[in-house]
Simulated scan of single mutants.
Amino acid sequence: MKNPFTLLVLFLLALTSYAQDAKTVDKEKLFDLYQNQRYADAAQYLKNTYGDEVNDFKILSQMGYCFLMAGNNAEAEKFYSKANTLQPHNLSILFSLGNINTKRGSTEKAKLYYGEIVKIDSSNFNVYKLLANLYNSPQDDSLKLNYLLKANFINPLEGDVAADLAEMHTSYQQYEKAYQVLNIAINGDSDNLVLQRAKLPIANQLKKYGEVIASGEKLLKDNADAGVIKDTAKAYYYTKKYQKAITLFKQLEEMKMENEATLYYTSLSYRALKDYHQSALYSQKTIDAGISPNTSSYYALLGLVYEENKQFALAGTAYKKGLQFKATPTLYYRLAVFYDTSLKQGKNALKYYNLYIKSKPSPTDDKEEIKFSKSRIEQLKLTN
């Protein structure tokens, strides 16, 4: 494929072969602008020379290209659109208009331009790839899959499409199809580490554990990728090589890349080795990882809403439920005020005011709450 500079030189030679309304360009000046990649200056020079009302396809194409290379998509679209009116079936112009509208977020217009290309050339790999990238919402999955299938059929060795298609097959739990798509692409490019990494979780789903371990260990020599570590560790677990699984799962912890699933498998691995102490420890870590750190705050809010709506029994339950997830200063304070003002239970209020102070609230952010709590503690001591 010709590079952009070569294309521009060809355009330049074409432009100098004729003039419109006796207007000509300084070819040396234009060549110098191209050579120094001053596309904005070149575009403006052509526009100043020919004006906005130019109706020559080659000049319009050249001006559109210069504005596009300069990053001025609005002007580029204007001139490309005029060129498209003159030659509505020109693939280069349609691709450019589709590209410009994609960049500008006009997805529906881009789909129309790429759709025109499909009508003209139904075996064009690039247009199917571009169309697939425009369908990203869940309701568009069937269309995205259709375009990826067509692109992959035309060129099954292209890695990006193979990876995207395999991901789509996986989302439909069609693991064998996903595996085969990646296998074909990898056979065409055995050094493509992206494709090899993408195949590991799919191979695990198909219980090809030996393959996962062999490929995973090879990949880990190149880079300690968290996804590869996780998939290789799971394969070791399923082949009952528990200590190797634990070693890799702990590596994720050192990288701060552990999650609920990896902690769970770590606990299972320790249990299989009858190390019940560590298994219990990682079971608790799994539980903690599965709970949002904001859960206690959500219960604090729920309790406050119930309290303001005079649903006191529900408010108390919500506040105490929040404490089961994380005992925060906010929850202790809300409970103290709840018992103090809503239920008029001084003894319980005193208990939670004291717990609030002991929980070390922020001396700057919670200055007023701390002052109020200490004051109420002294007052409640006198009445209890």
Rank of each mutant, 00 (worst) to 15 (best):
308 E>D: 03
158 E>H: 13
160 D>S: 09
9 V>A: 01
222 D>M: 10
184 I>E: 01
295 T>M: 07
251 Q>S: 15
313 A>F: 00
277 H>D: 09
161 V>G: 08
117 I>P: 09
108 E>A: 15
67 F>D: 03
192 N>H: 10
204 N>F: 09
336 A>N: 03
171 S>R: 10
126 N>L: 07
367 K>W: 02
360 K>D: 13
14 A>C: 03
346 G>S: 07
223 N>K: 15
158 E>C: 07
236 Y>S: 12
252 L>V: 15
244 K>S: 13
256 K>H: 14
28 E>F: 05
239 T>R: 10
277 H>Q: 08
353 Y>D: 00
288 D>M: 01
306 Y>I: 05
152 N>R: 04
343 L>V: 13
192 N>M: 02
313 A>Q: 01
337 V>S: 02
190 S>W: 00
330 T>S: 05
318 A>V: 10
271 R>P: 03
334 R>M: 10
162 A>S: 14
126 N>R: 05
38 R>H: 12
172 Y>P: 00
146 N>H: 12
139 Q>N: 06
207 K>F: 08
192 N>D: 08
223 N>Q: 11
375 S>E: 04
8 L>W: 00
73 N>W: 14
315 A>C: 02
29 K>F: 06
21 D>V: 06
212 V>C: 12
144 K>H: 08
260 E>I: 09
35 Q>V: 06
60 L>V: 13
379 Q>I: 04
351 K>A: 08
91 L>T: 15
76 A>G: 14
244 K>H: 11
248 L>G: 13
372 F>Q: 05
192 N>E: 00
368 E>T: 09
134 L>Q: 11
273 L>A: 01
57 F>P: 03
340 D>Q: 04
136 N>Q: 12
260 E>M: 06
250 K>D: 15
13 L>M: 05
62 Q>Y: 08
69 M>E: 13
338 F>H: 04
52 D>F: 06
95 F>W: 04
164 D>G: 05
334 R>A: 15
111 K>N: 01
12 L>H: 08
338 F>I: 10
201 P>A: 12
355 L>A: 13
155 N>Y: 02
298 Y>S: 09
100 I>Q: 05
266 T>E: 01
305 V>L: 01
177 K>R: 12
